[in-house]
Computed example of a mutant assay.
Amino acid sequence: MSFVRKLKKALGWEFRNTKPEYNLNPIIYSHLKPFRVPLVLVQLIMMAGTIGYILIDDFSILDAIYQTGITFTTVGFGEIAPISEAGRFFTITLIIFGFATFTLSTAILIDAVIKGNLFELYKERNMLYKIARLRNHFVIFHHNEYTAQLARQFKLNHIPFVVVDSRDDMEEISAEHNYPYYVTEEAFTEKAFLKSHLSSAKGAISLSKNISDNITLIASVRLYEKELGRTPLLIISNAETQYDKDRLKKLGADKVVAPPSLMAKRVSAMAIRPDMENVLEEFLYKPDTPIDMEEITVHSDSWVVNRALKDIHLRDRMKVSVIGITEEKGRFIQMPSAETIIKENCKLLLVGNQKGIAKAKRIISQILKPGDL
């Protein structure tokens, strides 16, 4: 490894690979193959014309190239120097071949534009290069009203995402709903995973109203991540019934949302505690909220294991409160006291501002106790 590369790595300046995982260039080149014959003919005629004018009328190389060019393209500029009778016969032959070549090239170009999809391929390649720059994004499979609403929330919270659907009018749909990145492919195929750069994503979201589509997608994503050997993706899906919700969780979904059940719970909350629902809307769902809530796992090698909550100074140093602890065996401790001991592999439910929670996560993940604590 060179010194410059080592220095970049030490400073964290190494550039990520931003090339798409799915290469469209071979397909584009296959569409450009018909143009090879006209291009070769143009080169051969230019070479033959230049050599002909040099041998027949003793032109200089530059004059011969220029005379061949204006003759071959039939622009009608005339002779740049006196040409012999043999030279004029050669010029007529060159004009005929030039006209035939341009006619052939025009026919091939029109055929490629009418029958081919070069412009669509170039637009898709540009989209894939943009997607390849994303990291820790979400891939949302299947476009519907759920996807449109989720995309709106993601944009408000500056969460990158890619929408995948097999509809032919995905370009129009993405323009209508302001999807910044989209892929037109069948959701559960490897091609869709490659184009959406699922390997560098944070999670996959399947929002089809058809439970079979969600089942197929979850199974395909889990198999794909095993092939990559990467950490498990966060998979979120939707289901219409509790039975389907349980099925999707057993198949590998991390979170499953049941819209009817969720709507019933929220309406119930509005009816019973309308003021509390307003608080949730104000502090948890708004993109610019000063308060955030997050659950983090305390790993066995963390320095906070077997220490009391008061010893990690989350409240006084980071303005973060622990409002709940889920122990490894599933027991939930509500509003733990300052004397509560933190056990390994438990989950802490934190409430505070985003900056404070991020700092708390960094401190809790360390093996050694930070010096300033």
Rank of each mutant, 00 (worst) to 15 (best):
F72N: 00
I211D: 07
P260I: 08
I65T: 03
F102N: 00
I51M: 10
S268R: 07
G52S: 13
E277Q: 15
I83E: 04
E145P: 03
F72E: 01
H299D: 09
Y243F: 12
K245C: 10
K245E: 14
R315H: 08
H158D: 13
F90I: 01
A48L: 14
E240Q: 13
P38L: 04
A187S: 15
W303K: 04
K347M: 07
S199T: 14
D63C: 02
R273M: 09
S212V: 12
F90L: 06
L94I: 05
T326H: 00
T74H: 03
H158Q: 13
L128I: 05
A48D: 01
D311K: 12
A204S: 13
S30D: 07
K347H: 11
L32P: 03
D213M: 11
S105T: 14
V298A: 00
K226R: 12
T231C: 04
P274A: 07
I45P: 01
F102L: 05
A132L: 08
S261D: 06
D311Y: 08
K319T: 13
L233F: 15
E294P: 02
H31T: 06
M170I: 13
R167T: 09
L368I: 09
F3V: 12
V139G: 08
E227F: 07
T68M: 05
K191R: 15
N306W: 04
L41F: 01
G203Y: 09
S261Q: 10
P26F: 11
I235W: 10
I114E: 09
L280A: 04
L150S: 07
K33D: 03
V163E: 07
D63M: 08
L134K: 10
A269P: 00
L233Q: 10
R230A: 12
H31C: 09
Y224G: 01
G352A: 11
F119M: 06
S206T: 15
T241H: 10
A48K: 01
L194K: 15
I323S: 03
V4T: 05
D58T: 03
F283H: 12
M1R: 02
M1T: 09
S105P: 00
S300V: 11
G324S: 15
A112W: 01
I114H: 07
H31K: 12
Y53L: 05
Y22G: 04
T50N: 00
V40H: 02
E171S: 08
K319W: 06
I272W: 13
V40K: 02
S200Q: 11
T91L: 03
K209M: 04
R167E: 09
D316A: 05
K329F: 02
S2D: 14
L134E: 10
K249A: 06
K8R: 15
N25Y: 14
L128Q: 01
G98S: 02
L280V: 07
Y122P: 00
I342E: 01
H31W: 15
M276C: 06
D288Q: 11
P336E: 04
Q153M: 14
